[in-house]
Amino acid sequence: MHRSQHGGRHELGQNFLTHKPAINKIISLVSQTDGPILEIGAGGGALTRPLARLGRQVTALELDEHRAKKLRRSLPQVVVEQGDALWYPLTAPVIVGNVPFNLTTPILRRLLDEGAWEHAIVLTQWEVARKRAGVGGGTMMTAQAAPWFTFELCQRVPSWGFSPQPSVDAGILAIHRRETSLVPDAEQGAYTRFVRAVFTARGRSLPEVIHHAGGVSNRRARQAIQHAGVRGQRLPRDLSPAQWVGLWEYLR
């Protein structure tokens, strides 16, 4: 295969999935959804082929023009688009993808900020998948998105299940749009700024953090924490979506 105008597989951050249990798990998760599917980072078609067998409309997006051309020839029933996942419209109800490791954060941010998709089944670095799902402590990005999305860590994928083999394991992350948001959409911008303020505020305890982040008295900070149902010594990374919403409702 000729070299892509976008660079080789390393420049594209490509680690092609070969792990059959992971492929089967992703297809199983997708089969529980409905509607057209958009696959981002189709690569050599490891996921595209079984997705096509689901009998649904599949669009495969691939940046490398040579791989896109090869997929068009081998899978005529699939709409293959040569393009960039950072720009391509995310309009399909179901998004699937083995996300290039060097683009994980910008692609996840775009997924959570744009489009009208309902379900996203993505393969990312293991630590990223764990953090997004709140295992061992949540992240600011997850806390900001939690009123509108749920995150589920579905399976660990060993590094040897890719070619070329990356230096870290991967994880299958399922993101679903909530049918009813926990915070009104009109308050999304203000809520997002509130979460950022809490995550970046100084303080060695949650009351101190809330005091500085919200510009409220220590007493009101403690009342907000009690209202949110937070018990014991907690930090922002330890809060559940419901507790974040409780803090916001009390302090907004």
Rank of each mutant, 00 (worst) to 15 (best):
M1F: 13
S4H: 11
S4I: 10
H10T: 12
Q14M: 07
N15T: 07
F16V: 06
L17G: 01
K20Y: 09
P21Y: 07
P21A: 09
P21L: 08
I23D: 03
K25E: 13
I26P: 00
I27F: 08
S28M: 10
L29A: 00
L29C: 06
Q32K: 15
T33Y: 04
D34C: 13
D34M: 10
D34K: 13
G35V: 05
P36N: 02
I37D: 05
E39Q: 08
G44I: 12
T48K: 01
T48P: 03
T48A: 09
R49Y: 10
L54N: 09
G55W: 05
V58R: 02
A60K: 04
A60M: 06
L61Y: 05
D64Q: 03
D64A: 11
A68E: 02
R72E: 14
R73W: 09
S74W: 14
L75I: 10
P76Q: 11
V80C: 02
Q82S: 13
Q82W: 04
L86H: 14
P89F: 08
A92F: 07
V94P: 06
V94F: 02
N98Y: 02
F101I: 05
N102E: 06
N102A: 03
N102K: 10
T104S: 15
P106N: 05
L108R: 01
L112H: 09
L112E: 10
D113T: 03
A116N: 15
A116K: 13
E118V: 09
H119W: 15
I121N: 00
I121W: 00
V122T: 03
Q125V: 05
Q125A: 10
A129H: 03
R130V: 08
K131G: 12
K131E: 10
K131V: 06
R132S: 06
G134H: 07
V135W: 14
G138K: 01
G138D: 04
T139Q: 06
T139M: 01
T142Y: 00
Q144Y: 00
A146S: 15
P147Q: 01
P147V: 05
F151W: 13
F151L: 05
C154W: 14
R156V: 09
P166F: 02
V168C: 06
D169G: 04
G171M: 03
I172L: 14
T180I: 08
S181C: 11
L182D: 07
L182V: 08
G189K: 14
G189W: 01
T192H: 15
T192N: 11
F194H: 07
T200I: 12
A201M: 10
R202V: 11
R202Y: 01
R202W: 14
R204A: 09
R204T: 09
R204E: 11
L206H: 03
E208D: 12
E208L: 08
I210N: 04
H211R: 14
H211K: 12
H212R: 15
H212T: 08
A213R: 00
G214I: 06
G214R: 08
S217C: 11
N218S: 12
R219K: 15
R220V: 14
R222G: 00
A224F: 03
H227L: 12
V230G: 04
R231L: 10
G232S: 12
G232R: 07
G232W: 02
Q233V: 15
P236W: 08
L239I: 07
P241H: 09
A242L: 14
W244C: 12
L247S: 04
E249A: 12
L251S: 10
R252N: 14
